[in-house]
Structures are given as structure tokens and as C-alpha cells.
Write a protein that binds this DNA or RNA. Structure first.
Lengths: 192, 192, 192, 192
DNA sequence: GATGAATGAGTGTTCATTCAT
DNA sequence: TATGAATGAACACTCATTCAT
């Protein structure tokens, strides 16, 4: 019986709902239907359980990003793909994405933390991905002549903001809003 | 000597940096240079201290929003004003804004919480403000014919996302990025 | 205005209802409508306030006992007088009597306590009073030949027990029960 | 090793000696030779530990009362049995009886308290037991014609008073006093 | 794998008390 | 007299963690 998996899923849920400090090992074990010491059999401690979850989530998220096609008919398709992929990640694993996005900063500020590099990495990956898109699109004439760095930052903000507010939308709105976001960016970027 | 004020400022800083559960009353009192029981002389407890700070921050934020001019030469100026005002709020009181934006959801989910209505209120205020802008602008021909509700959501996401990632930028970038955001929205919304 | 008197009356009530340890100086001051430091203006501290009340109550009680007539037509009248006097004391100052009777043992066990001698004194006074009555009554043939020390103890127990259970009775029952107690003792003691 | 039992016995002693509010969890744990958190492993808190002890004591006491024989040669034997049983209970478990008798009123006044019904129950059981004895004895001519309700109250007072003052007596006096109490009541009640 | 019992260190909170005014 | 502000010491209680089984 997957007691370990049960433990992890419960921890993911509670950490996402209540934060790391707001969640106790007793609560995790009880809601997972096991006893507390079992956490210490599978993990070195609460911190390692949390880190384990984070790393898994980071890697899953980055795996999705790395799977985005390199070859696309044009640069805007890359941006469209990114928006779809991030929104899909939120939809597929809302709690893990929530953890990656919101609870991290507080606990991973410390550069020595195992997840610190991953967190920086995700931001930089997005930044590089969008910067390269914009540069190529501007050169090719597909995009207007926008300030690359600043516009990339705005795009990341929009994507992150939407991920965070994801829970406010119902099933139908999600799809329409995703499309609205893509259109919003297209109109702004595409040369007339 | 302003020990109470000192207490509050320290609490704001620590709550913003470490979250509610990650901050202890002992830590607050020590870093404020007072003793722990003083917290309980001025506030009913840790929770009330936190709530006091949140309410103050919510009200300061909404005060700024309510101060936005009702009469503007056109609808996009309203959106431009909103972006400037929110970014200015983040700049003037970064920790309080951080609290209002990020630490709340976790603790204010409970509809009975004193701050729950304020939090909902802020979102709805933004939504109404933007929805009205868009509607009027579309009718007057100032804006293109975009889906109002969805586009408002995207705009809020962008604004929130930028507020949250504010700390990643240095003094100069902030101004350039703010301008880039305004331009990004203008190009997307304004009729050609 | 009698703030001090107010303080004392409130303290009497709270100490009687909740005990010494269950009553806080803040509670006393609040319910008395004054501030906490005022307690320390009038008394050295909580303990002295309590002791002040106890001494007052002890002395008032003993004053009533000392006022009992020495010359009586017979010995049983003395016993009757004692029962009436103790029951009247409970009726006139129920809370103070309650303090003298029930909350003391816990706090006055220590022989160094100012009230320790008073407490012992009250018991011994009762004991001597009853012992003398019984002895004289037995010698004079008024009473049957009962074991003096043991019977005195039983009588004290009855008197104390009734004082303690006083609050269970309504106004009318009190009088009838007091009479029943007197008759109960009379039948048991008086020679046929 | 019986750490839980140790904890309970120590708590019984300290609660009886110092009262609920005068006893700290740290003191209990130290004197029991365990650490404080162990209290919270076995009980929900200090209050539950106290309640656990009270319930146990109440039930033990009532168990003894229920064991009294229903069939007796006459009604006074029932009263004699009651006096013996209560005094024996005090002798066998002086601290628990002390708790049941003296510390309760203060903490169990609240009708919602788990022990409130038990406390009322004990009083009513005594009252009913004695009332029935007296009625039957009066009808059968065994007893004089005394007022039933009031005399029952006086008898309860004597029994309670003796239980409370039990600690003042040494081993020998206890037996003599118990006998004196029985004789005292017999002379008062029995028809000549 | 899994658990019941146990703990050292710390948590939020309250206490009686003091001090400057 | 009287109080608002402040505190050292202690309080009931919880935490993540360990250990014997």
C-alpha cells in the first residue's frame, strides 16, 4: 500500500494550503492515515520532505518547459506555447505549482538552499526564452520594436500573475481567459 | 519613545520576510528592542497584531486607489494611472504591499476573517475599475473590441505579477519596466 | 468615592467564587472599575489584599462568637446559640464565611502564615466552647453521658457542613433546617 | 514503568493539596519524574487530566455507595452503613475524596462541565437514600416523627463535615469519632 | 516497515508587579 | 490618589524529533 505516496500527497496539499511553517508533521501524518515516525523513516525530517516535494515539482515544471518545441513557424507561437504550457501546468498540478510559485521565496531566499538554484533557474529560463523570442521576432519584422528586457519582464509578470489567480476562475473561464491572454499579447507585439 | 510604532514596523518587516507562521513573537519583540509582553499590552495577541497591520495596509492601498482621478481625457489614461498607482504603492511600502498581496490568501481564506472582505473588495474594485474602462473605451472606439471580463482579468494578473516581482528590479529598471507595461497595454488595447 | 472599598468587595466576591489562584489582579481591578496599580497603592500585593480580607473575616466571625452570652439558663441553650450564630454569620456574609471555611486550608497550611493561628484558633474556640458545654451538661444531668471529645467533633462537623451547604437552600428552608438541626442535637443530647 | 499512573497519582496529590489553579503542569511532571509533554501525550491538557481524576474518584465513590446492602434488619442500620461507608471512603482514598468534596464546587459550577451531573448526582443520591430511610423508619415506628427533608439535610451536613475534617484526627480517634457519630444520630432518631 | 511512548527546545500568552507621571 | 506603559518570570501547551520494539 502506498503509504509513502499518501504521505507525500497529503504533505503537498497541506504545504500548499497552509505554508511550510503552518503545517505540522502531526497534521500531515494524521491526514495521511499514518503515524508521525513514518515521516522519519522515509525522510530525514520535515525539511527534507518539503525539499523532496519542491524538487519534484520544480523538475516536473521544467520538464514541461523543456518539452516545448524549438522549431515553430514563427516566434509568437513560442510565446503562445509558453502561455499554454504554464497554464496547463497550473491546471494539472495546481498545488505543486502553487508551492513552486508562492511558498518558495519565503523559504528559499537562502542561496545555500538546495532549491535556490532551481528557483533562480526557472526565472532565468523564462527570461531567456522570452528574450530570445522577442529579439528574433523583432529582427525578422514579426514583432514591433519593443524594449526586449522590459517587455520580457512584463510577459513573465502576466504569466505568473495568471498562474497565481488561477483558482479564481471556473473551468470555462480558464480557457477563455487563456485565449484572451494570448490575444492580448499578440495584439501588443505583432507588427501591424 | 514610540515603542508601539517600533513594534509594528518590526512586525511588518518580519511578517513580510518570513510569513506569519515563520515569525515568532519573541523575535518581533527582540528585534524591536522591547519585551514580549508589550505585544500583549498593545494587541490582543499575535493574530491581532498581524490583522492590525493588514487592515492598515489594505486601507492605505485602497486610499490610494480611491484617490485616482475620475475624470480623464480618455479611458486608457485610467489604465495608465492604475498601473502607476499600484507600482508606486509597491515602491512606497513594499513590505506592506507584499503582505497584502502574498501572505494574505493563506491566512484570510476563512470568510469570517476580518480582512476577508477587504481582500475580496480590492480584487473586485480592480475588476470593476478595469471593466468599466474597457467597456467605455470599446463603445467610444478608443479601444479595440476585446472580451471585457477576460481582458480585465489579464490586466489584473499583469499588475499583480509586476507587484510581486518588483523586488527583482533595481531603481532604474523599475521606471523603464513600468513604462514598458503601459506601452504593452496601450499597443494591445488602442484601436489602430 | 470608595474605590478602596469597591476593590475589597470585588476581591471578596472573586476570591470566594474562584479561589485565590483562580483570581487575577487584572480581573479584580477591572470588575471593581479601577486600574491594576491601585491595588498596589492600597496593599503590598495580591497576597496582602487576600490576607487583609481573611483577617477581617476571621475577626468579624470571632467577634460574633465572643458576643455569645456566657450566662444561659442551661447548657443546651449555649449549643443552640452557637448554631444560630454560625448560621447567621453565613447568612450575613456568605462570601466571607465561605473564604474562612473553604479556601483557607489550601493557602494557610503554612504555620508561618499570618492567618494560620486565627484558623487554628477558630477551630479550638469551637472545640473548647462545645467541650465545656458538654462536660457541664453531663455533670449537671442535663445531657446524657456522651463521649465529650468525640461528640464535640461531631457537632463541629455538623455546623461546618451546614455552613458549607448553605447555598443549596432557599430563604424558607434555611430557617426550617436550622431549627431541625437544633432539634436533632437536642434529642440526641438531652437526658430523657 | 507505569509513567502514566505515576503522573496521575502525583496529580491527585498536588490537586488535593494545592487546588487546580495552584498546581502547575511543570510541578506535576517534575514530581512524577517525567517531562511535561508527557501530560499532553496522555491527556488533552491540564483540564482533562483533572477531569479524568475527578470522574474516576466520583465513580469509585458512587461504586461504594451502590454496594451498600438494600436489605437491612432496620432503617437505622442503613444510616449506620452510610456513615461507615463514607468514612471508609475518606480513609481509603483521602485525597480523591477531598477533591470530590472540596475542590469541585469551585470548578464544576458550570452546568456544562462533564462532572457537574456527577456532583449533583452524589448529593441527590445521599438525599434520596436518607429521605427514604427516614420515611420508612417513621412509618414503621422505628424513628421518631422528625421533619424528613430537613433532617436529611442535617445528616448530609454531618457526614460531609466529618469527611472534610477527617485529616484533623489520628488513627484511633477516627474509629471512636465514627462510633460517636453513629450513636449521636441513633439517640436523636430512634423512638424511645 | 511501522508504531507507542517519550522528550528538549521553544511557542504564544498571562501573571503579579513596578515605574514615571 | 490614580494611571498608562512596561517587564521578569512563569504558564499551559506544541513542535520536530528520537528510540525501543
Amino acid at each position: 500500500m502506498g503509504k509513502k505516496k499518501n504521505l507525500i500527497e497529503t504533505a503537498v496539499r497541506l504545504f500548499a494550503e497552509q505554508g511550510y511553517d503552518g503545517t505540522t508533521t502531526l497534521q500531515i501524518s494524521r491526514e495521511a492515515g499514518v503515524t508521525e515516525p513514518l515521516i522519519y523513516y522515509h525522510f530525514k525530517g520535515k525539511e527534507e520532505l518539503f525539499t523532496h516535494i519542491l524538487i519534484e515539482a520544480f523538475d516536473e515544471y521544467m520538464g514541461r518547459m523543456d518539452a516545448l518545441p524549438c522549431e515553430t513557424p514563427n516566434e509568437f507561437t513560442k510565446i503562445e506555447n509558453l502561455i499554454h504550457a504554464t497554464q496547463q501546468a497550473v491546471k494539472d498540478m495546481p498545488r505543486r505549482t502553487r508551492l513552486v510559485m508562492s511558498s518558495c521565496p519565503a523559504r528559499i531566499k537562502d542561496p545555500k538552499h538546495v532549491c535556490h538554484d532551481r528557483m533562480i533557474g526557472i526565472y532565468e529560463w523564462h527570461y531567456d526564452y522570452l528574450t530570445r523570442c522577442l529579439e528574433k521576432g523583432i529582427i525578422s519584422g514579426e514583432f514591433r520594436d519593443v524594449p526586449v528586457a522590459e517587455t520580457a519582464f512584463v510577459l513573465i509578470s502576466t504569466i505568473n500573475g495568471m498562474s497565481r489567480q488561477h483558482s479564481l476562475l471556473d473551468e470555462d473561464s480558464i480557457i477563455r481567459t487563456r485565449q484572451a491572454a494570448v490575444d492580448f499579447c499578440r495584439r501588443s507585439l505583432m507588427a501591424i
